[in-house]
Amino acid sequence: MTDSLSGATDDSDLTSLHSRHLVEAIRVDHLNKVFRQKHYSSIKRAVFNLLRAEKVVNYPALTDLSFSVPQGQTVAVIGRNGSGKSTLLGILARVYRPTSGRVDLLNPQGNAARIAPLLSLGAGFHLDLTAEQNIVFYGAILGLTPKEIAKKRDEIVAFSELEDKMDTALHGWNDGAKLRLGFSIAVHIDPDILLVDEVLAVGDEAFQNKCYRFIAQLQRAGKTILFVSHDLSVVERVANRILWLQNGVIRMDGSVEEVLTAYREDAKSAPPPPNPRPQNPGEGE
């Protein structure tokens, strides 16, 4: 495994309540992800393709990626569109299966971690259900039992500041309110690892600040956070470490200042990336 922690350990030295570094939170070992584009959309084409050699187009989204994240660290993943950020997050959230390689997500005790993926604005919500029902459903998707959800319910509602809307269906809600509810649920299920994909950009400033305060609280509690963002000010504010992906490989991995300096330098000077790939399903941007 490449020693990808250099430069990051000092910076991540937060006041953690837990004894850290006993078990790594995220261990990614020689991870490859290739999206194959050969799927037939119709039986007709499938039958015709029996007769001739099928043409398979492979898009390597991630190539031989290895890194590990100690417990309690907050890692920002940056990179241009199509660099593999969302694919990486999707694999960590178990939405995609790696083509090869190994991914382990562990809690401080060394067991399988509870993951809270905040991959998109309220993906688990059903607009016909009330907020109350959505909390139960979303919680169940994230792996909570009814008792656990009932226990967390009040905290979630209080944090989201949506008490008066709890009995209304989500139909008429604006995006900001849905985001608040989604964020509140995801962070209150007591995850070991929080995966965030570019969602903090929505919501008013007051709620954003509240989210940052809560994230800081999670960081102090020793939770591991991995997030994708294009907003470098967010990265600067929250992260202890940056993973810079380019064309599916790690371009740079290190402390926030170090990587951001190089990244900004690169954005100024670099021409557009060679051979831009078509959007693959991993890049929902």
């Binding site: 178990r94 993926p117 991959l119 993906a123």
Partner: peptide, 9 residues
């Protein structure tokens, strides 16, 4: 498919 693309279960 929206939910399948976002969360594992």
């Amino acid at each position: 498919k929206d939910i399948i693309k976002k969360v594992y279960f």
